[in-house]
Simulated scan of single mutants.
Amino acid sequence: MHPVRILGDLEVKRDMVEVAPIVLRSHSLEVTVRKPGTNYNGSRFDWTGWVSSITLHNRHTFCADESLTPGEGTGGSGLCNEFGIFQPIGYEEALPGGQFPKLGVGLLTRPDEASYKFSRPYMVEPFFIETKADDSKVTFTVHAHPCNGYAAKLVKTLSVKDNLLSIAYELVNLGEKTIVTHEYCHNFVALNGNPLGPDYRLKLPMTPTFPSEPSSLFDFKDGYMTWAYTPEQPFYSRLSGPFPPGLQWELTHKSGVGMRESVDFSPAFIALWGDAHVISPEVFMEIAAHSGQMIRWVRQFDFFERHMDGGTGG
């Protein structure tokens, strides 16, 4: 695959090929995972482990697009993660025209003296990625490519069992310099495609604040967040951590369908972004890996439907 060339604000994508995705199945779930570089070769999101659709019991869906307007936004959809949204590795050390690593993507080129901006497209020299898959599991191995003293091997494994989707990460610092950054999963979610509004409720570890949003939009009761009406513009909040490992958020719809995310690490913070058609709770993992160090962490997503008797169907 050739690098992605950037001409001003125009991203020219080369060798973009529609390739059949990887489909993981359990008796309850069908999870579609994109093959790296086939439907997305931008410079923001990790190319590996991109979940484009999730179906529970052949009838309930969970994934949405970042934007419903073609060409708008940064191309996110479903469950896709990102490294370095706030702390890009090696960016400040790279001179204009020089490269810096973006984990899960490749070596990006710094075009000028401007500060890093996650939504800005950068020229990409992709990392070499190996993929191994069977019916219920897929592993992506992103091989190290040294750059200015930084080098990391990333192994990500997605697996399904019953109504659970697990994403296991292994990051090995093979470079000379310490890797300090964040990782999070940008969960672009809509339950059965329903727009955000009064039929949804979200449980978080603490109550978020939205200083720029109308106070009439949100309601908080018994630990749950609800919406009085469908929001007319995007909203964002950041919840300060750290939080204990375990369940971090749960989203349900009045129809009974829902999902939750648990992690085995102490999140540095949690962000909440949303729009009329999508909501995204984002749980951030803080990374500080010294030379030669290996770090592992796991995210687990639980998809369910609640029956009329209050029970949960897996």
Rank of each mutant, 00 (worst) to 15 (best):
M1I: 05
H2A: 09
H2Y: 08
H2M: 11
I6A: 01
P21H: 03
S26I: 07
S26V: 05
E30V: 10
P36T: 06
P36W: 05
Y40L: 07
R44L: 13
G49I: 08
G49M: 07
V51L: 06
T55H: 03
L56C: 01
T61I: 03
F62D: 00
G75N: 01
G78T: 02
E82I: 11
G84D: 11
E93G: 12
E93N: 12
P96M: 08
L103E: 09
L103Q: 09
L108F: 12
P111L: 07
E113V: 11
K117N: 09
P121A: 02
V124G: 01
E125Q: 13
D134Y: 06
S136M: 08
V138K: 02
V142C: 11
H143Y: 14
H145S: 14
V155F: 02
V155I: 14
K156E: 15
K156P: 05
K161D: 14
N163A: 07
Y169A: 03
V172Q: 12
I179F: 06
H182T: 14
V189H: 09
L191A: 02
K203P: 00
T209S: 14
S215H: 10
D219A: 15
D222M: 05
Y224F: 14
T230W: 08
E232I: 07
Y236M: 04
F243C: 01
P244F: 08
G246K: 03
L247Y: 00
L247F: 04
L247W: 03
W249C: 00
H253Y: 13
V257L: 05
S262G: 04
S262P: 03
V263G: 03
F265C: 08
S266L: 06
P267H: 04
D275W: 05
D275F: 04
V278H: 01
I279H: 03
P281H: 02
V283F: 03
A289H: 10
S291G: 13
M294H: 08
W297G: 06
R299S: 12
M308P: 00
D309R: 07
